[in-house]
Nucleic acid binder design. Structure first.
Lengths: 207, 207
DNA sequence: CAATCGGGTGAAATCGGCCTCACCCGTTCC
DNA sequence: GGAACGGGTGAGGCCGATTTCACCCGATTG
C-alpha cells in the first residue's frame, strides 16, 4: 500500500466489546483515520456533517428503520456507509444496500477482512458477507436450545427419574416423555440418561 | 480494590472484533491476568489442564452442545466458567448454568459489568444478563426486516408504481398490495409512498 | 422372558408468521 | 364527486415449530 491521504471514518456506537475491537483494529491500519468514534446513534447526522468522513460505520442493531440509512446517504452522498450487523441475513444486507449502504458486514467477519472492506467501501465497491449456507455449510450458531417442555423433562432426567415417573410428574404419557428424551439426547449429543445424571444440582434449574 | 493475587483467566476463541475488545478490556484490570487467549474451542480442555485458571471465558457460539460445558466443569471444578453469548435467551442462560457454567453474559454487556462479572464469577457467584423485557422495554434489535413479498412490493413502490400496477405485476389483488404497502410503511417508519420514491436505483434490488 | 430403554417414523393438535383478500373509515387530489 | 391512497380490523390458507401420543425395532437387564 502506498502512502496517500488516509481514509477518514466515523464509527457509530457499538457494544463495548465490539467498539474496543474496532478501535484497536482500525488503529492498526495507518491508512485509515478515525475522525469520530462511539458516536451515539442520534448524532450520526451531525457527525457526518462536521467530519465529512469517507466512510461511516453504522451499527445495524441501533437502526430503527432502514430509512435512517437512506436519509444519511441522501444528506451525505459522498460518505460511504458500512453497516455492521450481528449475523445479518441476506435479506437484511440487501435491504441495507437498497437503502444506500455501500457494504453490509457481519461482526463475525475476520479482522483483516473488515479493514479490506473499509478500503473497498471507501472507493464505492459493495461488500457483502459470504452466504451462510450454500450447501450443508457448518454454522457456529451455538448449541441447540431445548424447548420449554424438553427442559422440564431434562430437569427430571437429571434427577435420575424413570420415564414413567417423569410422565406422572408432568401429567403426560410415557410415549411423550420418551419422545422428549430422544430429542434431548440428540440436541445434547448424549446417548444415555446416565450421561445426564452427573450434573444434578449445583446450579439453578434448567427452567 | 486491594492488591492480591490476580484472577487468572483463559479466554476461548471469539470473533476477531470481540476478541480484541476482550483483550483490551481485561488488560485494563490489573487484578485479572490473561493466561490463555484466543484458545481454539477444541483445545480448551488442554488449556484448562495446563493453566488451571480461575475463570474460563467460553464462546457460546462455538459450543456444539451444552455437554461440553459440563465436561469442562467436571474435569476442572475449581475453574469457574463464564459463557459469553450474542443475545442469549433466558432459556439458553439457564441451560448453561444447569450444565456447570457460573455466569452467562451477553456480548452487549457494558465493559465494566463484564469485568465485575469476571470478579464475581471467580468467587463462584452466578451472573446472568438482565431480563430483556419486563414490560415493553425497548430492545435495540435493529430494524424490522421486510418479508420477501414486501420486498417485491417495495421494489415496485420505489419506482412510483400505483397499487393497481403493482397488483397486476405481481399477479395478486389490489387489496393484497395495499396490505403489503401498509406493513412496509409501518416497518420502515414512513407514511407515504412519496418517502420511498427518492431511493430508486443506485444499489442492487431489495431482493 | 418381561420391563425398560434407545431410536425411528408418523400422525394429530396447536401456535405463530406470512400471504392473500375483504370491508370499514377518513383524507387528498383531479 | 369519484378515484386513489393511508390506516384499521379480520378472515382463510399455508407452513414450520412444538407438544402430545402411537407404533415399530433391537439391546440391556433383572
Amino acid at each position: 500500500m502506498e502512502a496517500r491521504r488516509p481514509i477518514t471514518v466515523v464509527v457509530s456506537r457499538f457494544e463495548d466489546l465490539v467498539s474496543r475491537g474496532l478501535r484497536t483494529l482500525i488503529g492498526e491500519d495507518s491508512n485509515i483515520e478515525i475522525v469520530g468514534f462511539d458516536v451515539p446513534h442520534g448524532q450520526l447526522a451531525r457527525s457526518f456533517a462536521v467530519q465529512d468522513p469517507d466512510v461511516g460505520i453504522l451499527n445495524f442493531g441501533s437502526l430503527r428503520t432502514p430509512i435512517e440509512v437512506r436519509d444519511l446517504h441522501a444528506a451525505h452522498p459522498d460518505t460511504r456507509i458500512v453497516v455492521l450487523a450481528n449475523r445479518p441475513t441476506p435479506a437484511e444486507c440487501n435491504q441495507m444496500l437498497a437503502f444506500g449502504a455501500t457494504a453490509c458486514l457481519s461482526k463475525e467477519t475476520q479482522a483483516r477482512d473488515i479493514l479490506n472492506a473499509i478500503h473497498l467501501a471507501s472507493r464505492g465497491l459493495h461488500v457483502l458477507p459470504k452466504t451462510p449456507r450454500e450447501f450443508g455449510a457448518i454454522e457456529p450458531t451455538g448449541p441447540e436450545v431445548l424447548t420449554p417442555r424438553e427442559a422440564d423433562v431434562l430437569e427430571l432426567l437429571q434427577h435420575g427419574r424413570s420415564n414413567a415417573e417423569i410422565a406422572l410428574a408432568l401429567g403426560v404419557g410415557v410415549e411423550t416423555v420418551r419422545t422428549h428424551a430422544r430429542n434431548i439426547y440428540r440436541k445434547l449429543g448424549v446417548k444415555t440418561r446416565r450421561e445426564l445424571a452427573t450434573l444434578a444440582g449445583g446450579s439453578p434449574a434448567a427452567r
